[in-house]
Amino acid sequence: MSTLTYPEVGATRLGPLPDGYNHLHHRAVVGRGRPAFEAAGTAVTEWHVHRATGAGVDASAVRAAAGVTVEVSAGIGPLRITAPCEVVWTAYGKDRTGFAYGTRPGHPERGEESFTVELTDDGTVWFTVTAFSRPASWYTRLAGPLVPMAQRWYARRLTTALRRAVSAA
Rank of each mutant, 00 (worst) to 15 (best):
V29P: 00
V29E: 13
V30L: 04
R32I: 10
R32M: 11
G33M: 02
R34Y: 02
P35Y: 02
P35A: 03
F37S: 08
E38M: 02
G41V: 08
V44R: 03
E46N: 12
W47E: 03
H48P: 05
V49W: 04
H50T: 08
A52G: 09
T53F: 13
T53P: 12
G54N: 07
G56H: 06
G56W: 06
G56I: 09
V57E: 04
S60C: 12
A61C: 11
R63A: 14
A66D: 14
T69K: 14
V72P: 01
S73K: 13
S73L: 13
A74W: 15
A74C: 15
G75M: 09
G75P: 12
G77H: 12
P78A: 15
L79K: 12
L79I: 07
R80G: 11
A83V: 15
E86L: 13
T90N: 07
A91Y: 02
A91G: 07
G93L: 01
G93F: 05
K94I: 08
D95E: 11
D95P: 01
R96K: 12
T97R: 13
G98H: 07
F99K: 10
T103I: 01
T103C: 09
P105R: 03
G106F: 02
G106Y: 04
P108R: 09
P108E: 03
G111H: 05
F115E: 01
F115W: 07
T116W: 01
L119T: 08
T120I: 10
D122W: 07
D122T: 10
G123N: 08
G123Q: 14
T124E: 11
W126K: 00
F127M: 10
V129E: 00
